[in-house]
Amino acid sequence: MSASLPSPTIQATTPAEDAAAQLAPRLAAQASASDQEGSFPEQEFDWLHAASLLTAPLPIHLGGQDLAAASQTPSLLRTLRHIGRGNLAVGRVYEGHTNALQLAQRFGRTEQVARWAEDAAAGHLFGVWNTQAHDGVQLEPLPDGRYRLRGSKTFGSGAGHVTRPLLTGALPDGGWQMLILPADVQVPQLDKSFWQPLGMRASASFRVDFTGLEVGADDLLGQPGDYYRQPWFSGGAIRFAAVQLGGAEAVFDETRLFLQKTGRTEDPYQRQRLGELAILIESGQHWLRAAAEHAMRPQATEDADTTVAYANMVRTAIEEICLRTLQLAERCVGARGLLRPEPFERLHRDLTHYLRQPAPDAALADAGRFALASTSPAYTLWHD
């Protein structure tokens, strides 16, 4: 009698990812209406709020689902992937919301986190605005213990709608300080003319001027330099990679639907391309599962160098998967599929633009640097 093999472990889904999966088709159906320069998917974020996704990154005792905890990384990445396949602009802003709440919990004081949790429950959108304009943000200490802001950020995704942006700014001594601005009270000036993009038009990523606004000490988050602490700064790349892969999955689905509608499923070359696309999408999902496992290692924080190098390898692999997906999909649908109102046209623009994340060459070189410095054999290089 042969020994029975153990049953494969099926990872249970969470309420957050179930809600995101159910919302994805609605987001996709609404995406063309939101795809206007300078617009923002307000209705879509009302849906996310109603589905408790704005509070999902918070700990359970503060009304959330603990989605930002390291132990929930698989669920977080799947949630982001689902929202990305619904609408990449929504995914981009929601990823920033999640990132801000993660940083708030990691570096904030107990009373601060409780206050910001109440804000998220009330529907406030958080985000992370770090990219400095030529007149980057500076914090000027005032005699009463408050701080006056001066300068601007660019690529402020969700500007005008994100009411709790997490900013970074320079202190007089050169320190780099985080703060969360109550932007519904201290209202910054928006330069919408900055945002004339190829894709991601609905993300409203404007230039934002904070000159003259004031914040208190309770608005400061953590200590100077905390924002760039590793592995969290670079390791967070797996979040936007998850959103990007969701966009690639949407491209796959629309390409297949286009071929089915046009009666081209019997073409052997189309079948070959769909086979390649299927391999790419499944490869991306394997990368995200591995990324989640790597981020959950007990030593992930202490072994920051390995964690960052692996995250850089993941973002590089997902970028290549997405670029190859776009190339194959273009050949499948041809010129006709690139015409509006076909969804493929918008998906192509949005994903192409979103893939341009900062320093892609440096990210790949960092993974290579780590590999060159190691003496471990390949089979234990990333998983000891």
Rank of each mutant, 00 (worst) to 15 (best):
Y228N: 08
G246C: 06
S193H: 11
P298I: 05
A278R: 11
D66L: 09
P298A: 06
P224C: 08
R369K: 09
L181M: 00
L277A: 05
A300V: 01
R349A: 06
D46E: 15
D35W: 12
A133P: 07
R201Q: 13
A117F: 01
S2M: 12
R92A: 14
A114W: 02
R324I: 07
F155C: 09
W176S: 15
T131Y: 07
A363L: 00
A300E: 03
P41H: 11
T9H: 09
S376L: 15
A378W: 10
M1T: 07
K153Q: 12
R315D: 12
Q30G: 01
P298G: 00
L259Q: 11
E282H: 14
F258R: 02
Q244N: 09
F258T: 09
A31P: 01
L288T: 02
T110C: 11
H61Q: 14
F40L: 03
D184C: 06
L149V: 04
D191K: 08
A68P: 07
Y228D: 07
A68K: 03
L364W: 14
G123R: 04
P298N: 01
E214I: 12
T168N: 12
K261W: 11
H286T: 12
A367K: 05
F155M: 15
T262N: 15
P268W: 03
F258L: 13
P6E: 10
E266P: 00
G337R: 03
Q177Y: 10
D361V: 08
A311Q: 04
Q223Y: 08
A56E: 05
L142H: 01
A248Q: 04
A56L: 06
Q285V: 08
T79H: 07
L23C: 05
F107V: 02
D144R: 03
F155G: 02
L181V: 00
N130A: 14
D305G: 02
L257Y: 05
R78L: 10
L347H: 00
V137Y: 06
D66C: 06
L274N: 01
R201C: 08
G368I: 11
G127W: 06
E266N: 12
S75Y: 07
D144Y: 06
L125I: 02
S4A: 11
L23D: 01
G63N: 04
D350T: 03
R340K: 09
L101T: 04
A16Q: 10
F233G: 05
L339V: 09
L179K: 06
I83G: 04
Q285N: 13
E266L: 11
L220F: 08
L372Q: 13
A362G: 07
S376Q: 14
D361G: 06
D350E: 13
Q43A: 13
F240H: 13
F258G: 12
W195C: 07
R264V: 04
